[in-house]
Design a protein around this nucleic acid. Structure first.
Lengths: 97, 97
DNA sequence: CTATTATTTAGATAGTTGTCTAATTATTGA
DNA sequence: TCAATAATTAGACAACTATCTAAATAATAG
């Protein structure tokens, strides 16, 4: 898990909206783009950032590329929060920060 | 709660380290600075970002300024994660995003 | 009051990020 | 194969951020 990539990915409001959109179900790049007032290349950039954090997965389906959320990272994120705020020895997963 | 400020504050590794440092207990700006290989003005900047996110509180005590973590924000952060990833109607606290 | 210590604010700068348009790659239908 | 559609990559640019040094503010000790 890439901690820095995860926090960075979540720091942008457009990317958080993309995640929310994807919670309603997988969608192609174009479908997502329809919901945003932003150029497709800009969104593509955000997809890359989210993918780098492993928050998204994508799969080509014919002409389209389908994006879907990777909810297993949610546990990672929760763990990171615990590591920042929680009671010290909750999960002794405290390697490099 | 300022959602954007919170995510932004957590996106920087130095700031996350500051939070971890403060989990061990409150500390003055100077004490914190001793643990970091960075100028005091730079750290002061990070304190401000963390304060803006309400992750820290500070209190002048004589010559010193004592910083302490505000753990109540932890619940806010957890709620935001749920809002991004969790099952839709976990907490119907979904105002503006 | 003045000197000292603690911290912040101001101002500058290099690096990063989010956005755009234009060009490129990939896939499919005819 | 060619044209059309879907999406990405490339390149440019303005805005933002993290960092630094120097200067300013605040509190205390003598």
């Amino acid at each position: 898990m890439k901690q820095q990539a995860l926090f960075k990915a979540l720091a942008d409001p457009t990317r958080r909206q993309i995640l929310k959109r994807l919670r309603r179900g997988s969608a192609t790049a174009g479908e997502i783009a329809d919901d945003f007032d932003m150029s497709k290349p800009s969104l593509s950039h955000h997809f890359n950032v989210l993918k780098d954090a492993e928050l998204l997965r994508n799969e080509r389906r014919g002409q389209h590329i389908v994006y879907s959320i990777n909810t297993t990272v949610f546990e990672d994120a929760a763990g990171l929060l615990l590591d920042l705020f929680g009671s010290s020895d909750k999960k002794s997963k405290r390697g490099k920060q």
